[in-house]
Design a protein around this nucleic acid. Structure first.
Lengths: 129, 129
DNA sequence: CTTGACCTTCCTGTCACTGGAACCCTCATC
DNA sequence: GATGAGGGTTCCAGTGACAGGAAGGTCAAG
């Protein structure tokens, strides 16, 4: 199967698939004409990667997870550890964003939003708190 | 005032301050020896930038907000518009992250996390749902 | 006169791609 | 046989917002 079909099937852009090969996440074969040839296992890995990325795992996490996936003797604790770390990062990001949203939300509520220049948002940013 | 003092006072790394000059957000003067010389207005702008960045505004948003800040005839509606757009982006990010966290959280809960290889997390990523 | 703490510029790297240029392969059609 | 469309290939540059580091200039203190 060629890269275009793989892109359609996995939902990943061809560029992304080439990139994943470039960083050694997948190793498709090559046809005589130089075209990449994808086997079922390559498709499988790409789907795995797509799902892991959708859950926000970094590429390096994906590399680790993929290795664990292929290691029949893995300990599920290792997987859980990676996932827990990632979950903690997500939670941290969420609370950062929530703090921003609260502050920003208050400022927006306080701003008249008309054609006058007075603006609590700018006042706050300017440090006149 | 030199860049080190400004860094201390604003809490911004010197690297960041140089970068902000590079992209024309600030325009400190220069001493005969080539050192940057910061005036009160530069400090003020940097504090403004620090706060805006802490609220997650992009650099381009900051540029817009700074321009509005310095424009005495601005309409607060313009500021509010920028802020509202940004708030929407934050909300979108939060809900993306929440979705990830929920999915990931369930998977983590379902994973034994012991030395056995069976792992619902990998099963899900592998597409065996 | 040297030391050490500043400052300068410039280049590279980050992360995970994306866009684009320039070129090759294949098949169908005229 | 020429042509065109629609694949594929490589390689280079850009994204955002800096951070790290090298190589070198400046300045006050001892």
């Amino acid at each position: 199967m060629n890269i275009g079909d793989v892109a359609t099937r996995t939902g990943l852009p061809a560029k992304t698939i080439r990139y994943y090969e470039d960083i050694d996440l997948i190793k498709p074969l090559r046809d005589d004409n130089g075209y990449r040839v994808f086997r079922a296992q390559d498709l499988h890995k790409l789907n795995f990667l797509g799902r892991a990325r959708a859950l926000g795992f970094t590429i390096e996490d994906c590399r680790t997870l993929l290795a664990l996936y292929e290691d029949e003797t893995r300990a599920s604790a290792d997987v859980k550890h990676v996932a827990r770390d990632h979950l903690a990062q997500i939670d941290a990001k969420i609370s950062d964003l929530k703090a921003m949203r609260d502050t920003l939300g208050h400022l927006i509520d306080a701003c008249a939003g008309d054609d006058r220049p007075d603006c609590p948002i700018l006042q706050d940013l300017g440090g006149k708190s």
